[in-house]
Design a protein around this nucleic acid. Structure first.
Lengths: 342, 342
DNA sequence: CTGAAAGCGCTTACAG
DNA sequence: CTGAAAGCGCTTACAG
């Protein structure tokens, strides 16, 4: 990192201003000088000092991603998608993950200020109040956030549409009494999936009462909820677990109770985690294209950064599609249906 | 970001030099001035401009992580561990993942130069030649790398010890004819696991010939290898798949062939991916503490950055322990054994 | 087309 | 203990 723009200028016998212009592709210069400068830069293996450039251009060429403490596959896919899209645009990626509470998230966010040109924000702690307090002038994209009408863009997964499609599918394959094992209170994904379930039930099985069991997104929670179901002989024709882990717990409980899946009852999940197709019976579930989700969010942020005017009207919320993945656990023929496309 | 050190100086009626000293905790100043300065900074919500600071201190307070295209759980755990350790030290984390080839990795690395104080490098493309070409003066920690005697620190997972412990366990529980389904050619993890298998067989079952089947770390590969085994009636007492995915394929193939696990044959894996305990029979495997691996690597890098002299003698390779996780698929009683500790 | 100069926001010897 | 000044490496009006 010892070679600076001065060295290049000296080698090419021009001013540093000309070196800067040549390297940044300004056109007002003779082809000969430009060539000489570029050659000198190459020969000296010159790399501009990014801090110096940032200091004057006010651009870091870096975007920040503030992420919650996510479980495996989802998190890695998300970063992969973001990273791919960022690299394609020549942007760097500063990440910060696992924030237990709002204070930690705020600290992490503040630490990023000045180091990034924009922010991808995904955190259960990021709500309207949080954002108001931050009052950062930075372009931001909220991912999977419950916040409405924020001053920044929002990109959500279509949890509602995915759950809706699942219920529709179950009804179409002959199951009308469908119970839902819900997610944790206040969890945005859980709330949206519940909304989708309720809406689809009202639409496709209006005569049937809905049946919602409390859950918490853990295997144990799915096991417990199903145990209650079996004990009370409230046997629905299908159990829709709001995520795959709970569906696994549900399957265990049913096996112990001697209830056959899918003959006696259908079981479905949400997420399509890697093991969903490995367990038996293979799990019917809803898949989210997570890498696309990340890439999409980055594209949107990049657009906001580049074009302030365009960004202004981009501030409505967008949804990213989820698709039904039909396997053995629901007893229907396999097929794959998109719920929506962003 | 509009408020600068000048504004604080003006508000506190001192020079910018004094503001800088107060904020950086220099001691040569009266408590009164310091207090006045700190109060002014707080009131104005002053945050030092990191680029300006970097330009002069030559420190970015950021470390870079160059990672391969990893599968889910491993990658996310790794980043989680790195991020946690980095945050504890007030360091930022710049990540770049999924590099298909050596050229992409080189480009990514070069792009990070000047933006980071040190580098965590984990990539199948990072070999001795690659490093020589880079000749970066940056502190680096190679993670899970086959490179020997590099000028930088190396931190590896104890694949050898884990595989060794697995074979030892199988022999101890009465299985002597143990076949290994290997990983892809040239894969460092695979090579080390094979070494561990060979060494343990030589040690604990010296009279028994080793039996290594080609594999590729995919479920399909495990299925194929096991198919050959069954077709040729070369029935060992145990199959040790070099990763969990292949063990899953192996279990499928055995089920199809009507071979019972663990009664007729033991099956074990490596990695302890989340579904390992969910399939049936639950898989005996080797677990690696991935988050610790990441945190450890970061600590080591931070030490190198802070203390150049100490770093010099830290350059030997270190191993991070793997532990045996015994479940149903090997037919032994459950227990958990550490293979080694870093 | 090209250069001299100012300035981005900081830190740090150097004086006093 | 405190300040004036130089300088980190770049970019960009402003002249010519």
């Amino acid at each position: 990192m010892a070679v600076t723009i001065k060295d290049v200028a000296r080698a090419a016998r021009v001013s540093v201003a000309s070196v800067s212009r040549a390297l940044n592709g300004h056109h007002s210069m003779t082809a000969a000088t430009r060539k000489r400068i570029l050659a000198a830069a190459k020969k000296l293996r010159y790399t501009p000092h990014s801090a110096a450039r940032t200091l004057i251009t006010r651009r870091t060429q870096t975007i920040g991603a503030l992420l919650p403490d996510l479980h495996g596959e989802f998190f890695s896919e998300l970063i992969r998608g973001i990273d791919l899209a960022a690299r394609a645009r020549g942007l760097h990626l500063l990440v910060s993950s696992s924030h237990g509470d709002a204070r930690e998230a705020a600290t992490a966010l503040r630490a990023m200020l000045g180091r990034v040109d924009g922010l991808l924000l995904m955190s259960p702690h990021v709500d309207a109040g949080f954002l108001r307090q931050m009052r950062a002038e930075l372009p931001m994209v909220l991912m999977n956030s419950p916040v409405k009408r924020a001053r920044c863009a929002i990109l959500n997964i279509d949890n509602y549409g995915g759950a809706f499609a699942m219920v529709q599918h179950l009804v179409a394959s002959g199951r009308r009494r469908i119970a839902l094992i819900g997610g944790p209170d206040g969890n945005f994904d859980a709330v949206e999936r519940l909304r989708g379930y309720n809406a689809a039930m009202a639409r496709f099985a209006p005569a049937i009462p809905t049946q919602v069991l409390p859950g918490d997104f853990t295997e144990e929670g799915g096991y417990r909820a199903t145990g209650d179901l079996v004990a009370n002989k409230l046997r629905p024709q299908a159990v829709f677990a709001a995520n795959d882990m709970m569906a696994v717990g549900c399957l265990h409980a049913l096996r112990e109770a001697g209830v056959r899946v899918p003959e006696d009852i259908a079981v479905t999940g949400f997420d399509d985690v890697p093991f969903a197709r490995l367990i038996s019976p293979a799990l019917t579930t809803v898949r989210v294209r997570i890498a696309d989700f990340g890439a999409h969010a980055l594209e949107r942020l990049a657009t906001m950064i580049e074009d302030t005017t365009d960004a202004a009207r981009e501030k409505h919320a967008q949804l990213l599609g989820a698709e039904l993945v039909v396997r053995q656990s629901c007893g229907a023929k396999e097929l794959l249906v998109s719920s929506a496309v962003a």
